[in-house]
Structures are given as structure tokens and as C-alpha cells.
Amino acid sequence: KMTIRVKGKELARRIAKEMKDRNLKVEIHEHGDEVILEIE
């Protein structure tokens, strides 16, 4: 399990899509400006 902190929703969406393309499970937690992606 891996956690990534990202500034900006646009970048977070791009990373999430990339991870889904690799068949990984992604959970997205938004905290205002910061987005936390949990990847399994």
C-alpha cells in the first residue's frame, strides 16, 4: 500500500487514471488544496 500527497486536483486525477490503467486500486481523499491518493 502506497500513499501519495499531491497539490492540485488536476494532477491527482491524472495520477489516479494512470494507476487505474495499471489495474491498481486507488482511493482519493481530498483535503482542500491537497489530495491524498492511497494506492493498493
Rank of each mutant, 00 (worst) to 15 (best):
H31F: 14
E30S: 07
K9D: 04
V26I: 07
L11D: 06
A12P: 00
I4F: 06
E18P: 00
H31N: 12
E30D: 11
E40H: 12
V35F: 15
M2I: 14
K17V: 05
K25M: 10
L24P: 00
G8Q: 07
M19F: 14
D33M: 05
V35W: 15
I4C: 11
D21H: 09
L37Y: 02
K20M: 15
L37H: 00
I15T: 02
E34Q: 09
A12G: 09
E38H: 12
V26P: 00
V35R: 02
E27D: 09
M2Y: 13
G8W: 08
K7Y: 12
I39T: 02
V6I: 12
V26G: 02
D21F: 07
K9I: 15
K17N: 09
E10G: 06
M2H: 11
R13I: 14
N23S: 06
K1W: 10
K17G: 05
E34P: 02
M19Y: 12
R22D: 02
G8S: 15
E40K: 09
E10L: 08
R14Q: 12
I36W: 15
E38Q: 10
E38F: 14
M2L: 13
E30P: 04
A16N: 01
K25A: 07
E27I: 15
E38C: 13
E18L: 15
E30V: 12
E27Q: 13
D21T: 08
M19D: 00
K17T: 07
M2N: 04
K20I: 13
E34Y: 15
N23I: 03
V6N: 02
E40W: 15
A12D: 00
I15G: 00
E30T: 09
M19K: 02
T3G: 02
I39C: 04
L24K: 04
E27G: 05
I28F: 08
I28Y: 07
K7M: 09
R5E: 03
E27K: 13
K20A: 12
L11Q: 07
K7V: 10
E27H: 13
A12T: 01
D33G: 08
V26F: 07
M2A: 07
V6W: 02
V6A: 02
K20D: 03
A12S: 02
R13P: 00
E40F: 15
R14F: 06
R22P: 01
L37T: 00
I36M: 05
M19Q: 02
V26M: 03
I4E: 01
E34K: 04
L24N: 03
K7A: 07
K17I: 06
R22H: 08
H29V: 11
E27W: 14
D21Y: 07
K9G: 06
E30I: 14
E10Q: 08
I15M: 08
A16K: 03
R5N: 04
K17E: 11
E38R: 10
E34M: 14
K7E: 06
E27Y: 14
K17F: 04
K17M: 09
V35T: 09
E18M: 14
V26C: 02
E34A: 06
R5Y: 08
E40D: 11
K9E: 07
E18W: 15
H29Q: 08
E30C: 11
I15W: 04
E30G: 06
R14L: 11
I28D: 00
R13V: 11
N23R: 08
K7Q: 12
D33C: 10
H29A: 05
K25I: 11
L11R: 09
V35C: 07
R13A: 14
R22S: 05
E34D: 11
K20E: 12
H31M: 13
D33N: 08
L37Q: 01
L37S: 01
D33W: 07
R22I: 05
D21G: 10
E34I: 14
K25T: 10
R5S: 07
T3R: 09
N23Y: 08
V26L: 04
R14S: 06
K1R: 11
N23H: 11
R13K: 13
R13F: 14
K1G: 09
L11T: 08
R5G: 03
V26H: 02
R13H: 14
K17W: 05
T3S: 07
R13N: 13
R14Y: 05
D33L: 06
R14N: 05
G8E: 07
E18F: 15
T3Y: 15
